[in-house]
């Protein structure tokens, strides 16, 4: 634990707060995976960790390495941008495929296709 003693208090306290906030928000989002009842409700839960958790913990990591190495560290912005851009794409595709499967099985509580909508054999129309 030699390097952490080099961290001054004005940098250590924001790092602590950011770490605890980020991991707490991620835990809340993952608890939503257990607590929520339907799949379409659960689809919203992990986005909490994928947006706020990622941003806060990457900020903590940036502050730590920037103070320890006495220079600006911007590597973590790569992770932030990549995850924030790709998570909606993933969840939108997953929701589309779940809706497609529910419509084929004709489950209850799934919105039907609109009357004027063209039926597409590929199943891509929502």
């Amino acid at each position: 634990m030699s390097h952490l003693t080099d961290l001054p208090a004005w940098a250590a306290i924001p790092v602590c707060i950011l770490l605890l906030l980020g991991s707490g928000i991620t835990l809340i989002g993952s608890l939503g995976l257990i607590r929520l009842k339907t799949f379409y409700g659960r689809l919203h839960a992990p986005t909490l960790g994928a947006s706020a958790g990622i941003i806060l913990i990457c900020l903590a990591s940036m502050i730590t390495f920037a103070v320890l190495q006495n220079r600006w560290i911007v590597h973590e912005i790569l992770i932030i941008v990549f995850v924030v851009v790709t998570t909606p794409v993933t969840l939108m595709l997953l929701g589309q495929s779940a809706l497609y499967r529910d419509r084929i099985e004709e489950n209850d509580g799934v919105p039907r296709k609109a009357a004027g909508q063209q039926t597409d054999t590929t199943g891509m129309d929502i």
Partner: peptide, 14 residues
């Protein structure tokens, strides 16, 4: 299960 895997790798990355 896919949603759980998605959340799992993001938590592992953090």
């Amino acid at each position: 299960r896919i949603l759980g895997l998605d959340a799992l790798y993001i938590n592992a990355m953090l």
